[in-house]
Design a protein around this nucleic acid. Structure first.
Lengths: 197, 197
DNA sequence: CACAAAACGGAGAGGTTCTCCGCTTCCTCT
DNA sequence: AGAGGAAGCGGAGAACCTCTCCGTTTTGTG
């Protein structure tokens, strides 16, 4: 299930020129999104890829499809790390490490990954969301069973917290701040529920 | 002092028609933003206010200026509550209550308030951000001094956490979820730093 | 080599943000 | 009251964006 085959499932473009253009588009998108954020002009991406707008839209019906494509390899890497961590010794430590990696992932994309992950509304990128949720679920389950993570927590909540940290610190360039916030959240994960006042 | 001096500081429009148009614009913006979110068309707002686009842009040089105006009364209310809570008995409880109110505030605006608060980049809306930060600082200071809030926390961090919760749950309509996440964050606020693994 | 299918690219429709400037409305001063 | 100047209005329009449609080019194949 975490074998990651699903990610590489998309192999639609048959003709070699189509394949090439697709790759160019993803490369250009990676650049432009990095420069201008997730709201960057798709026209500009097409231009920089050296193709017409029509070509872009045939390959990627909407913005989130393109975002998914850009993020997919990063997500693959997260998946690989999750698999490694799932068989590690310390379940708590595994969860923590993965969440750190996930935070970095979410931040690096200026929240564009997060946008996708929070709202799987887009037709094309639901598995993006699913995969991440699966990873988190696996690691959290284990940390609840064999570690000290509190039981009343869902993977969904945890991801929302971390995504929130990423989103709310994209403009903040003080180093270490997001990590500090993550530490706070991790404290909460291991703490037991407070008595309500 | 809750008379809104600071908030009403902007009193530029002298002529009565200008004043009126400004109010119409804010009212229309409140409606349209509520319907279509913070990315709503400014043209549409102008149309619904019964003024030309030019008029809108003279009163509010950019989108965030308009957002600020819409939010300002809500922020006034938050400020009033902060003042009440600042002289309440239980400093921890005061902070908690205010954060709950702030979370509701941030969520109600579909994250548009949050967007403003996180990035005071816009020329027009920095005091929006300042005021909120001041409120949070006051309440947190007191909770650290007289309550049980941990000392290594800044108001900025706290706001980021809560804003993050708001942002990452705007699409989530399961009731109580955001509050649960806030509870988690509050646990962290009162917990002591964990030993690193 | 020829030919169908696949893919391309760009013109263009419809929307948006934001500016510019001639015209209208208000306020003030005599 | 009435006139003059300043403040404000509004909409035409430039520049841009998303996304579609379809004639033309490219590719793989028999």
């Amino acid at each position: 299930m975490t074998n990651g085959r699903a990610g590489a499932a998309a192999e639609p473009p048959r003709r070699t020129d189509a394949r090439l253009n697709r790759e160019r588009l993803v490369a250009a998108a990676r650049e432009v999104f990095a420069e201008a954020g997730p709201g960057a002009s798709l026209n500009e991406i097409a231009r920089r890829a050296g193709v017409g707008p029509g070509t872009l839209y045939r390959h990627f019906p909407d913005r989130s499809a393109l975002l998914s494509a850009v993020l997919s390899d990063r997500i693959e890497r997260l998946g690989a790390q999750a698999e490694r961590l799932l068989v590690s010794e310390d379940a708590d430590e595994a969860l923590e490490q993965w969440l750190r990696a996930f935070l970095a992932h979410a931040r690096v994309n200026q929240g564009m990954g997060s946008a996708l992950l929070v709202e799987p509304a887009g037709e094309s990128g639901p598995d993006c969301h699913r995969r991440i949720l699966d990873m988190a679920t696996g690691l959290l389950d284990r940390a609840q069973l064999h570690g000290s993570a509190r039981a009343d927590l869902t993977a969904d909540d945890l991801l929302h917290l971390v995504i929130g940290i990423a989103l709310s610190t994209t403009q903040d360039d003080r180093p270490g701040r997001p990590e500090f916030l993550l530490d706070l959240a991790l404290d909460a994960v291991h703490g037991s529920p407070r008595r309500k006042g």
